[in-house]
Lab assay of single mutants.
Amino acid sequence: DEDSERELEKLRKNNASKEEIKEVLKRLGFSEDEAKKLAEKAG
């Protein structure tokens, strides 16, 4: 959803580590696997 998109955008701009991105995604309700895949894509 839009909030998670914004959250990811912010992380990308701040050069967050894949680990940080994954944690945020998991907080947003993604499964471990989904979060890992998305973090890879974002990283």
Rank of each mutant, 00 (worst) to 15 (best):
D1P: 11
D1Q: 13
D1S: 13
D1N: 12
D1H: 13
D1K: 14
D1M: 13
E2P: 12
E2K: 11
E2A: 11
E2C: 15
E2Q: 12
E2F: 14
D3H: 10
D3Q: 10
D3N: 10
D3M: 12
S4W: 15
S4Y: 15
S4Q: 10
S4V: 15
S4T: 15
E5K: 13
E5L: 14
E5W: 15
R6I: 08
R6P: 05
R6D: 08
R6S: 11
R6F: 09
E7T: 14
E7P: 01
E7K: 08
E7G: 03
E7A: 14
E7Y: 12
L8W: 07
L8T: 03
L8P: 01
L8C: 13
E9H: 09
E9G: 08
E9R: 14
E9W: 02
E9M: 06
E9K: 11
E9D: 09
E9Q: 12
E9L: 05
K10M: 11
K10H: 08
K10N: 10
K10F: 11
K10V: 06
K10Q: 09
K10P: 01
K10D: 05
L11N: 02
L11A: 05
L11E: 00
L11M: 05
L11P: 01
L11K: 01
R12H: 06
R12T: 05
R12G: 02
R12P: 00
R12L: 14
K13F: 08
K13T: 07
K13H: 07
K13V: 07
K13L: 09
N14Q: 12
N14Y: 09
N14F: 08
N14K: 13
N14A: 11
N14L: 13
N14C: 15
N14H: 08
N14E: 08
N14R: 15
N15F: 10
N15Q: 09
N15D: 04
N15E: 05
A16Y: 08
A16N: 02
A16I: 06
A16F: 07
A16L: 11
A16D: 02
A16R: 06
S17T: 10
S17C: 14
S17Y: 04
S17H: 03
S17L: 07
S17F: 05
S17P: 04
S17M: 06
K18N: 08
K18R: 10
K18P: 13
K18F: 15
K18A: 13
K18D: 08
E19G: 03
E19W: 08
E19M: 04
E19D: 09
E19C: 09
E19T: 05
E20R: 08
E20W: 12
E20L: 08
E20D: 07
E20A: 09
E20V: 08
E20G: 03
I21Q: 01
I21Y: 06
I21E: 01
I21M: 07
I21T: 01
I21P: 00
K22T: 14
K22W: 14
K22I: 15
K22D: 06
K22L: 15
K22M: 15
E23T: 04
E23Q: 08
E23P: 00
E23K: 09
E23D: 08
V24W: 14
V24N: 04
V24M: 14
V24L: 13
V24D: 02
V24K: 06
L25A: 02
L25Y: 06
L25S: 00
L25W: 00
L25P: 00
L25H: 00
K26M: 15
K26N: 05
K26I: 14
R27T: 04
R27N: 06
R27L: 09
R27A: 08
R27D: 02
L28P: 00
L28K: 02
L28N: 01
L28V: 00
L28Y: 04
L28E: 01
L28C: 14
L28R: 05
L28I: 03
L28W: 04
L28D: 00
G29V: 00
G29D: 00
G29Y: 00
G29E: 01
G29Q: 00
G29M: 00
G29T: 00
F30H: 02
F30R: 02
F30K: 02
F30L: 07
F30D: 01
F30A: 01
S31H: 03
S31K: 03
S31Q: 04
S31A: 05
E32S: 03
E32F: 02
E32P: 04
E32Y: 03
E32M: 01
D33V: 07
D33W: 07
D33I: 08
D33G: 05
D33F: 07
D33T: 06
D33A: 10
D33Q: 09
E34I: 07
E34T: 06
E34P: 00
E34G: 03
E34A: 08
E34K: 04
E34N: 04
E34R: 04
E34Q: 09
A35Y: 05
A35Q: 03
A35N: 01
A35W: 07
A35F: 05
K36N: 14
K36C: 14
K36A: 14
K36P: 02
K36Q: 14
K36G: 12
K36Y: 09
K36S: 14
K36I: 13
K36V: 13
K36D: 15
K37H: 10
K37N: 09
K37D: 09
K37E: 11
K37Q: 10
K37R: 13
K37I: 11
K37V: 11
K37Y: 11
K37M: 12
K37S: 11
L38E: 04
L38W: 13
L38Q: 04
L38I: 12
L38K: 03
A39E: 02
A39Q: 03
A39Y: 06
E40K: 03
E40Y: 07
E40N: 07
E40C: 13
E40R: 06
E40A: 09
K41M: 13
K41S: 12
K41N: 10
K41G: 12
K41Q: 13
K41D: 11
A42D: 10
A42C: 14
A42Y: 15
A42T: 10
A42W: 15
A42E: 11
G43N: 11
G43F: 15
G43D: 11
G43M: 13
G43E: 10
G43R: 08
